[in-house]
Simulated assay, not measured.
Amino acid sequence: MEQIFYNSYCPVPENQRPLNEFLNFKQSFYFKWLNQKLTNYLFRIILLSIVIFIFSVPIANFYYCYFEYPTKFIFLNCFIIIIFQTLIIIRICLTSFYIKERLNKPFIEYEESSWYDCQTWVKSIKVLKQDRLIYYYNIFPIINRLKKIIVYLILVYNIGFIFNILI
């Protein structure tokens, strides 16, 4: 994606421009997961769950021995998996909301030096349109998918919590 609308007069350093921040986010590991089809995405989430499960077994075994309390052991592992997945989703949400805010604002706040001096640059109309199009076609669908994922994780967490109380 070319930065044709950020002209040479733009005083914002390249690494602080919203479009470059979006491109860096787009190159990230988790963004690629979120843009895949639902089946591929679910496969990756299940694979991540298996990896987290492998690392959570010693932690859960410390609290509940598998041979004495197998149901509590399994529920504790599921709880650890859900917590780690939730932390990953929250991290992606925070990055998405930050980029959304930077793309939608009609101005860019930036720093020229290493200490905080908070300069602002007003975007031209072309730059603002480009940034908002990027938001509506790339970031907005991800935010909607993340909202659904968070609702499902909360639902699974609550069902597991209620089931754990009953057992």
Results as ranks from 00 to 15, higher is better:
1 M>A: 04
1 M>G: 03
3 Q>G: 05
7 N>P: 01
9 Y>H: 14
10 C>H: 02
16 Q>K: 02
16 Q>V: 01
17 R>N: 08
19 L>C: 11
20 N>L: 03
21 E>S: 01
22 F>Q: 09
22 F>S: 07
23 L>P: 03
28 S>D: 14
29 F>P: 00
29 F>E: 10
33 W>M: 11
34 L>Q: 06
35 N>H: 11
36 Q>H: 01
39 T>E: 09
40 N>S: 13
48 L>P: 00
49 S>I: 02
53 F>I: 02
53 F>D: 12
57 V>R: 03
58 P>G: 09
60 A>P: 00
65 C>F: 07
68 E>M: 13
69 Y>M: 01
71 T>I: 06
72 K>H: 12
75 F>S: 12
78 C>A: 04
80 I>M: 02
80 I>K: 00
81 I>A: 00
81 I>T: 06
83 I>E: 02
84 F>W: 08
87 L>G: 13
89 I>A: 06
91 R>E: 05
94 L>D: 12
96 S>K: 12
96 S>Y: 12
104 N>C: 15
109 E>V: 07
110 Y>N: 03
112 E>P: 03
112 E>C: 06
116 Y>H: 02
119 Q>P: 07
119 Q>I: 05
122 V>M: 08
122 V>S: 08
124 S>F: 08
126 K>H: 04
126 K>R: 07
128 L>Y: 02
130 Q>T: 14
131 D>V: 06
134 I>H: 10
135 Y>C: 10
136 Y>Q: 12
137 Y>N: 10
138 N>D: 05
138 N>H: 10
138 N>M: 04
139 I>D: 09
146 L>K: 12
146 L>W: 12
148 K>R: 14
150 I>E: 14
154 I>Y: 15
159 I>Q: 13
160 G>Y: 11
161 F>W: 14
162 I>H: 15
162 I>G: 15
163 F>A: 15
166 L>D: 01
